[in-house]
């Protein structure tokens, strides 16, 4: 019973992730407003982060990847090996979140400056360079 539920949950998760990527790509490609594009870009980045968190997850009996004692015994180490989730994806995600935040801030600053100079955020109108 629980296995069916968890299986369904996993499928639901994957569908959600694929849907989120589709939404992000739609926003980036189709929406003309620059702010919408930036929002879609952060959705894409967050989806990638969620996806890599998933990969580190261990099905059934996952624990926080922390060894509570300073000098662990062999049993504790074996327990850690059996139950801990993969800590590396979380490190990657921390890095990626910080980078995404700064890039988004930079993009928004550029968008504000573009609005000041062109008076529009519509990418179909803000076109002086072409050819």
């Amino acid at each position: 019973m629980t296995s069916i539920v968890s299986q369904a949950l996993w499928i639901y998760f994957y569908i959600t992730l694929i849907g989120l990527i589709a939404i992000a790509v739609y926003g980036i490609v189709v929406r003309p407003n620059l702010l919408k594009k930036i929002i879609a870009l952060s959705i894409l980045g967050d989806t990638a982060n969620t996806f890599i968190i998933f990969l580190g997850f261990r099905r059934g009996g996952a624990a926080v990847p922390i060894i509570p004692t300073i000098k662990p015994t062999l049993e504790e180490l074996l327990w850690f090996k059996e139950t801990a989730v993969d800590p590396l994806p979380q490190c990657l995600v921390i890095t990626a979140i910080v980078i995404n935040m700064s890039v988004t801030a930079f993009l928004i600053a550029l968008a504000i400056q573009l609005y000041r100079l062109y008076g529009t955020l519509d990418v179909r109108k803000a076109v002086r360079l072409r050819g």
Binding site: I28, L34, K37, I38, L41, L44, G45, A48, I99, N100, V103, T104, F106, L107, L110, A111, Q113, L114, L117, Y118, A126, V127, R128, L129
Partner: peptide, 16 residues
């Protein structure tokens, strides 16, 4: 600024 926002939006997409 126009060139920069195009450059950076596509670049941010590529890194993601």
């Amino acid at each position: 600024i126009e060139a920069a926002i195009k450059y950076s939006l596509i670049g941010a997409l590529a890194t993601t």
